[in-house]
């Protein structure tokens, strides 16, 4: 296999090539694996239909609970598996710091936009991939947001985020009982996922494209 390396150039294509090159060399999985992770990520989001407006905006209206159920279950299961993987040396922690102002201000902005757009930065691209132009417009807004953030990072956004209060994980509050804490956390979060009442908001326009016997709203009736 011939590896073409393009390190020179500042036009868009060269910089996209440099992006691939960076991933090849940064040691976080091979290029193919990272691409594959993306395919599976997009596939799961699409196949479970959580990229739909009716899922996240529906949750904001408390008319659909699929997204929190799926998220909590994923967190519950992963927390237990990951902890023991880290203990066995098969993974590492990648904890984000506690920056109070950044987390709270960012969380407020993020929550407002998630309810209105009905997507998050992970489900948005999957939605664009199934032909949603409104989300593409949202992505253009997002790119400008990213531009503004980059341009004014040093002068405005970094001071706004405040100082880091360090990186903490839950188990550090209970020295000596780490295993128990992990198990309880994982199990409790998974149980939350199960007990959140299942509610679904369907989109007629999508369902109409399916054959009658494959419609999920009919099956439940």
């Amino acid at each position: 296999m011939q590896v073409v390396v393009i390190t020179e150039g500042e036009d868009i294509l060269s910089r996209i090539a440099q992006m691939f090159e960076n991933v090849i060399h940064q040691g976080h999985g091979s290029l193919a694996l990272v691409f594959l992770i993306g395919i599976i990520f997009g596939g799961i989001i699409q196949y479970t239909r959580v990229d739909k407006f009716e899922k996240i905006a529906g949750f904001a209206m408390l008319k659909d609970t699929i997204v929190p159920k799926m998220l909590f279950l994923a967190v519950g299961l992963t927390s237990i598996g990951l902890y023991f993987m880290i203990e066995a040396g098969g993974a590492h922690y990648h904890i984000k710091p506690i920056i109070w102002q950044g987390l709270v201000i960012g969380g407020i902005l993020f929550g407002i936009s998630m309810a209105i757009l009905g997507k998050c930065p992970g489900t948005g691209p999957v939605s664009i991939a199934e032909g949603r132009i409104d989300v593409l417009i949202g992505a253009i807004g997002g790119l400008l947001g990213g531009l503004v953030f980059t341009l004014y990072y040093d002068d405005f956004f970094k001071p706004l985020m405040g100082e880091s209060a360090g990186k903490l994980i839950l188990t550090e509050f209970f020295p000596g009982h780490e295993h128990l804490v992990v198990l309880i956390f994982g199990i409790v979060v998974s149980i939350i996922a199960v007990v959140i009442p299942k509610k679904e908001l369907f989109d007629e326009a999508d369902l109409a494209q399916l054959p009658e016997d494959e419609r999920p709203d009919r099956k439940q009736a």
Partner: peptide, 29 residues
Amino acid sequence: SGFIMIIGARLAGGCTSGHFMSGMSQMAI
């Protein structure tokens, strides 16, 4: 909303994937 979504996510240092899924799985405060 796309505009403020990215500013919000970058202020907080993550989004649904980075914070909610990956971060909570590590039990990060």
